[in-house]
Every structure is written in structure tokens, then in C-alpha cells.
């Protein structure tokens, strides 16, 4: 009897295994609420089954990057959809990514793709300063990063934990563009000015929307959430003036993992994500991503400056500063 039950169970399991659709495994750092609908559309259009692992806000992008590094000798992930760029470049430098020549990927501007076809950038966000209009009414608002260390903003400014996510990206980019010394002094100035370090960019935006903070350094997608909820907030772009460092643009990146167990469906998913149609969906969706493909026509309602001055950052150079930047952050911001 027991043997019979065992045989039936085994046969069922084998049957289930044989009946499975082709699968692609994605590690996705873009918020699940924004990325899941895209992956569901891909499933519906191609018949592939997508198994996704999402990041949580508090360890955004770095958590998945470190997991990919730990799994490099036995990869199970096929596609890494990162919501920023520096950690993808880190993976490329560490040999975790596989070159893949995507036809649609080649149409993106050179600045947003790897020369070796290891990664492609698409659908970008910008780093912004979100203001609570009630809390800052009648005050002269900051236009440059360094003005955030002004005593007027003592205890009224928030930022996400700079070890993770786009806050970490911004710090490493500033190390590359403004120099390590300038960035360190700026961060120390923020700390001595009582900046509140929260668990993620969303938390920063929510607290600004609720009036618990007057200002918060965050991303465009999180800011849009507060605008959509009709909270009294306004987006400001720091460093857009002639003497500023520029607005930091951070693209999503997609890459094929070296030794991916399901390489063929993975390539199809990468092409799908890079298509102008996907960029338009992301631009018009709740995350309001900025399209980078020349043929993507939709533009999100972000009140971008008429002539935005983008930060002139070389992402490869910024990655060279990653380790030093994180060591400084750990010493400065992770003590009790």
C-alpha cells in the first residue's frame, strides 16, 4: 500500500514537471508594483513562465547584486532587471554577466549600453528633492545639493539609507563627478545638520507627503506616488543651474547572467523589456519612468526643466569609487 502511494506521488511529480512551460528566472530590483504587470504581459504574449525574485526597499538593488555574486558558481537566475546602473556595472566587472547582442538594445544611446553588450540601460528615473509645500511655504528653496547643509533645514530633511538603492548610486556618482573630498564633506554636513536616514526612498517621499519632513532626497517614481495621492508636495531638480552638478539620471538596466540555465527565454525577455512599447508603458504607468529609446514617444508628467542639465557622470568611473564610498558611508551612517 505504502509503495503504491509512493509510486503515485512520484508519477504525479514527474507529470507536473513534464507539463511545465519554458521558464525564465528574473531577479528584479524595480518595485514589484511597477515591474510585475510588465512581466505578466510578457508571460501572456510569449507563453513563457516567469519566476521573479523581488528586492525589498531597504536593501534595494544591492541585496540582489550580492546574491548574484554569491551564486556565480552555480547561477539560477537568467535575467537581472536592476532599477539602477552601478551595481550592474559591478556585476559586469566581476564577470557575472554574459554578452548578448540585442537588436533593439543597439538602438539605445551609447551612453546607456555596455560597449561589450553586457548590459543595456532603459527607462530612467531622476534623483530629485521632494518638498512639502505647506512646510516650506514662503521659504527660499534649495537649488543645489550643498544648500541642504544650511542650518535652515536642520532636522527637516530626510534621505534613504545610503548603503543601498539609488541613494548609494548617487553617492558613488558624486564621488566620481564632484570628487571624494567634496562628497564626504557634503555627507558630513548633512549628518551634522540632522538628516533623517530612513529605510528607503518611498519612506522618504511618504514622510514628506505627510508633513513629517519638509524636504526629502528621493526618486521621481516615489515622488509621483505622493503627487498622485494629492499630498501637498512638489518636485525640485537640484543642480540644474549653470553652477550646479546636474540632475542625476539613473536608468534601469537589464542583463543576461553568465551560465543562465534558460538563456533563450532570457534573451527574449531582455528584448521585450528593451522595446519602445515597454518603455512607453513604464513612462505612462504609475512609476513615470523617463524613456531613453529614440522611438519611445510617451513622456511622464514629471515637470522636468525645459532644458535639463544632466549630471555628466561616467558610470564606469563611478563604480571605481563604489568601495570607498560604501566604506565611508558605513563608518559615517551605520554607527548608532
Amino acid at each position: 500500500m505504502n509503495r503504491f502511494v509512493f509510486v503515485v506521488l512520484l508519477t504525479s511529480l514527474v507529470g507536473v514537471g513534464c507539463g511545465q512551460r519554458p521558464t525564465v528566472v528574473v531577479y528584479c530590483a524595480l518595485d514589484r508594483e511597477f515591474s510585475e504587470p510588465i512581466l505578466k504581459r510578457f508571460e501572456a504574449e510569449t507563453g513563457y513562465h516567469v519566476l521573479a525574485k523581488y528586492d525589498t526597499e531597504s536593501t534595494k538593488s544591492v541585496g540582489l547584486t550580492e546574491q548574484l555574486l554569491r551564486e556565480r558558481s552555480r547561477p539560477r537566475c537568467d535575467v537581472f532587471w536592476n532599477n539602477e546602473i552601478l551595481n550592474t556595472v559591478r556585476l559586469a566587472n566581476d564577470g557575472v554577466l554574459e554578452p548578448f547582442e540585442s537588436t533593439v538594445g543597439r538602438e539605445y544611446p551609447e551612453r546607456f549600453r555596455s560597449p561589450e553588450n553586457l548590459w543595456y540601460g532603459f527607462a530612467a528615473r531622476a534623483r530629485v528633492l521632494l518638498l512639502n509645500t505647506g512646510e516650506t511655504e514662503g521659504e527660499t528653496l534649495p537649488t543645489k545639493r550643498e544648500e541642504l547643509t544650511d542650518p535652515r533645514w536642520r532636522g527637516r530633511l530626510g534621505m534613504a539609507k545610503p548603503l543601498f538603492g539609488t541613494t548609494a548610486t548617487e553617492v558613488a556618482c558624486l564621488f566620481a563627478v564632484a570628487g571624494p573630498e567634496w562628497t564626504k564633506q557634503w555627507l558630513l554636513g548633512l549628518r551634522s545638520n540632522g538628516v533623517h536616514v530612513l529605510s528607503g526612498n518611498k519612506q522618504v517621499a511618504v514622510d514628506v507627503g505627510a508633513g513629517q519632513l519638509a524636504l526629502g532626497m528621493t526618486d521621481t517614481d516615489d515622488s509621483l506616488g505622493e503627487l498622485r495621492a494629492n499630498h501637498p508636495v512638489k518636485i525640485t531638480y537640484l543642480g540644474n543651474g549653470s553652477d550646479g552638478l546636474g540632475i542625476l539620471l539613473i536608468p534601469n538596466t537589464v542583463s543576461l547572467i553568465r551560465g543562465a540555465p534558460n538563456a533563450e527565454p532570457a534573451r527574449r525577455l531582455i528584448d521585450y523589456l528593451l522595446s519602445p512599447e515597454t518603455e512607453e508603458i513604464l513612462a505612462l504607468g504609475p512609476s513615470g519612468q523617463i524613456p531613453l529609446h529614440p522611438r519611445a514617444k510617451a513622456s511622464p508628467k514629471l515637470d522636468l526643466p525645459e532644458h535639463p542639465k544632466w549630471m555628466a557622470v561616467n558610470y564606469e568611473k563611478a563604480v571605481e569609487h563604489w568601495s570607498d564610498a560604501m566604506t565611508f558611508i558605513k563608518d559615517t551612517f551605520t554607527a548608532p
Binding site: 536593501t59 543601498f164 560604501m326 551605520t334
Partner: peptide, 10 residues
């Protein structure tokens, strides 16, 4: 929290 942060940050 330190264990978690250290692990997640590599």
C-alpha cells in the same frame, strides 16, 4: 539589524 545589513551589503 547589523547582521542583516552587513550580509545584504556584501
Amino acid at each position: 539589524e547589523e547582521v542583516y545589513t552587513q550580509f545584504q551589503s556584501g
